[in-house]
Computed example of a mutant assay.
Amino acid sequence: MNQALLRHPHFVSLEGGEGAGKTTAINALRDWLQAQGHEVVLTREPGGTPLAERIRALVLTPDAGIAGEPLTAEAELLLVFAARAQHLSEVIRPALQRGAFVISDRFTDSSYAYQGAGRGLDLQWIADLERRVVGLLPGLTLLLDVDVAIGRARANGRDLWPDRIETEQDDFFQRVRAQFRQRAQDDPLRFRLVDASQDQAGVAHAVTALLAQWMAQEATA
């Protein structure tokens, strides 16, 4: 595989911590793009294919038969990248090749934030996996940023059965948020920061406006 990370203008990812409102934002983006006449593929990570969804279950809700065997941070990272490789092959690349827009709830930036900053794994190792396994960057990444306390309160009100990542402590999510914000600061051409503390209508308006602005810039580039 080419070691360069190639950006694709029809690939949009949404990132953010727990309770940031990505589902609302993704649906708003889909509706706006479809109104412009575009084919839109919505997907998520980990997951997006039958096999990748099974890997997702291992990462987030381990089977009772292995509940006594804690998942190591290294195994978690490699499982996420295994799911991502399948996701790219089966969903993302074919959709982009036929001209569709792909909107993904999380992509590789989440590995830097959750397994890197959150779990304390080497960011350079993640970057090497990204080059070797992925080779692709979204053209646009919308980072839904919200205070950890607000996001966790939303998530707790939504999820009756938190997954194994949602049960982490606040300091874990503070590190995750800081890493997301650092990545946005380091790559301002790709990232757009969205204030996710506002209500759902405000977030939906913000993300569609940013997408429209970005697409207009791409058209004149």
Rank of each mutant, 00 (worst) to 15 (best):
L121Y: 06
L129W: 15
Y112S: 07
L129E: 13
V133I: 15
A127Y: 09
S104N: 00
P138E: 03
S111D: 08
L137N: 00
L123E: 14
S110L: 08
S104E: 01
R106W: 07
Y114M: 15
V133E: 08
S110K: 08
Q124I: 01
W125K: 14
I103K: 08
T108R: 00
P138Q: 00
D109N: 05
V134H: 08
R119F: 14
I103V: 14
R119Y: 13
G135Y: 02
Y112V: 00
V133W: 04
V134L: 06
I103F: 10
R131P: 03
A127G: 06
Q124Y: 02
F107A: 03
S110E: 08
I126S: 03
A127I: 07
Y114I: 11
L123P: 14
G135D: 01
Q115P: 03
G118D: 12
G120Y: 09
V133S: 12
Q115K: 01
I126P: 04
R106T: 06
G135T: 00
A117K: 14
D122C: 07
D109G: 06
Q115E: 02
A113F: 11
R131I: 01
L121K: 04
L121I: 04
L136S: 04
A113H: 12
S104T: 13
I103N: 10
P138R: 04
A113R: 03
V134D: 02
Q124C: 03
D122H: 04
A117Q: 11
